[in-house]
Amino acid sequence: MIKRWFTILVLVLLIIFLLPYSLPFVLALVTAILLENSVKWFMTRFKWPRFRAVLVTFILYVLFILLFVWFVVQLFVSQVVSLAQKAPAFANNFYEQSLKQFIRDSEQYFKSLPIDVFESFEQTLEDTLQSATQMLQGLVEWLFGLAAAIPGFLIEFLVYLIAVFLFSLELSRLRIKAERHLREATKEKIYLVTSQLNRAGVGFIKAQIFLSVATFVMAFVGLLILQVPYAALLSIVIVFVDILPILGTGSVLVPWAVFSFFQDNQFLGVGLIILFIVITVVRRTLEPKVYSSNMGISPLAALVSLFVGFKILGFIGFFVGPALVIVYDTLREAGIIKSKWKI
Rank of each mutant, 00 (worst) to 15 (best):
Q196V: 15
T186W: 00
V30G: 08
I297R: 04
D127A: 14
I243A: 08
F261K: 02
A232V: 10
I209M: 13
S212E: 04
S98Y: 10
D242R: 00
R4A: 13
A232C: 08
I312P: 05
V304G: 01
G335P: 01
V221M: 06
F68N: 10
I277P: 06
L233S: 06
Q137M: 12
I225T: 07
V202D: 10
F58Y: 01
W48F: 06
F310R: 07
L247F: 10
V239T: 09
F58Q: 02
V72E: 11
Y191C: 14
F42L: 05
S168C: 03
G145H: 09
P114G: 06
V117S: 13
G222V: 04
T215V: 10
L143Y: 14
D105R: 05
I15P: 08
I297L: 05
Q208A: 15
W256K: 02
P24N: 03
L75C: 14
I336W: 01
S22C: 13
L275V: 05
A87W: 00
F64G: 11
L99C: 00
V10L: 14
D264C: 08
D116H: 14
S98A: 12
F157T: 04
A207H: 06
A148K: 15
Q85P: 03
Q97R: 11
V159Q: 08
L226F: 01
A149P: 08
K338N: 11
V140F: 13
Q266L: 09
S339N: 08
K311I: 14
F90G: 03
I176E: 12
N93Q: 03
L331H: 08
S131N: 12
W142D: 15
A91Q: 07
L146W: 12
S98P: 00
G203F: 04
